[in-house]
Design a protein around this nucleic acid. Structure first.
Lengths: 226, 226
DNA sequence: GATCCGCCTTACGTAGTCCTTACGGATCGC
DNA sequence: GCGATCCGTAAGGACTACGTAAGGCGGATC
């Protein structure tokens, strides 16, 4: 789901937080102090869970420094105090959410999910409308029209077509497509084959003799613009 | 982007809020109490961020008085309590959104952006009345007619229909609808499903085979104009 | 032209998604 | 305080889309 950096000097807290986040489907990396957190943040995690009290320099400082290099990464602060001033201070330093200890790990997971959902559209900065000849694909509306008439694509078919249209003339192996479109790192390559076949059925005039979604022998598939 | 009036007696809160809003490209003016807020509102800001607890007279009163002179300006209320009763009270007095302290400044910025986005078409054109074919929806009167005859929608059904009519041809996930229409960040997605079903019962000629409020498989729901 | 390997095609079981209905709690009006 | 209405949750069932397998076709290589 997402890669999350958990920063806390207390091994027990780390353990619990990591366990819950992993159960929610996230990948986690850990750090125990300020310098460690900055080093771990090099790998640009999708979200940071940050304790206020830390050895080295504290969480507020980490927060401030993080904002300098990665202004968009969501940060959730944890504090043993749970006082109002700490909250305001934390939020003032650029944190996106705040939880006072003791906190419910379930609540943490929920807030993390909420923040991730919000930060997602900001990171998607790609073109919303892709065209090729009489074909028009709208990513936000998730609609495709051919010569003005709407095509009904399934979710996977749409994602596949959107990816190919975004990278015309470039051949992709089944492995690459499985990774880019499906988000899998391994899996049955036949899956791609079948979906390409189904997509051709809807996009090509003569599916058995494709002219747009062509196969590159020994390599994979490629989108040929008209 | 927009001119925003920030009303809070706590300098720290004002500072943080103003900093975030300005970073988001907004211009800001500030006020520290009820009378000051009314005076500052003379310049007709595009949006007001309003604390509930204020010297002079409180935020609720400001909200009420503002509504008399500027019924359309979006108002976001802040409360140190974050209690349900306050929320109800605030919204009852005419606030458009509500945030309990401590709040995430980023969330505030997001909600401000959301409200501005919503209020924009209202100020540009007469977006209070939405139509589609024989369907007419009046936001101010909260009434809906189909082919001249009135439909009796519940509050939620109306909000759902209004949102969908305002964004035709664009599919929304259950999560998005829950966020936009219900104002929840998490919750049972079945809620959306059931309300869609109920709305179809009143809006579709053949509820089992919808042609206007259609489901987009693997994505969510979409309004298809006739 | 024979053989091999990659690709195509079809069919089918399943998991995931959505629909439907029913029920209990909450809210509002009387 | 009582009934009606609305709302949210739960459970069961139906259907779609998906992924896998298996057999056939067609280039590629020698």
């Amino acid at each position: 789901m997402a890669e999350i950096l958990v920063v806390d000097d207390d091994p027990t807290v780390r353990e619990v937080v990591v366990a819950y986040l992993q159960q929610a489907g996230h990948e986690t990396t850990e750090a125990v102090d300020g310098p460690g957190a900055m080093a771990a943040a090099e790998s640009s995690p999708d979200l940071v869970v940050l304790d206020v009290m830390l050895p080295g320099f504290d969480g507020l400082e980490v927060c401030r420094r993080l904002r300098a290099t990665q202004p968009d990464v969501p940060i959730v602060m944890l504090s043993a105090l749970g006082e109002e001033e700490d909250r305001i201070a934390g939020l003032g330093f650029g944190a996106d959410d705040y939880l006072g200890k003791p906190f419910s790990p379930r609540e943490l997971v929920l807030r993390v999910a909420s923040l991730l959902r919000r930060s997602q559209p900001a990171s998607v900065g790609t073109q919303t409308v892709l065209t090729d000849g009489d074909l028009v694909l709208d990513r936000s509306a998730r609609s495709v029209t051919r010569a003005g008439t709407a095509l009904t694509l399934t979710a996977r078919e749409f994602d596949l077509l959107a990816f190919l249209l975004a990278h015309p003339d470039e051949p992709f192996s089944r492995e690459q497509l499985l990774s880019e479109v499906w988000g899998w790192e391994f899996g049955d390559l036949t899956t791609v084959t079948v979906h390409v076949r189904r997509l051709r059925e809807k996009v090509e005039l003569e599916p058995s003799q494709p002219v747009r979604l062509v196969t590159v022998w020994g390599v994979g598939y490629r989108w040929d613009p008209s």
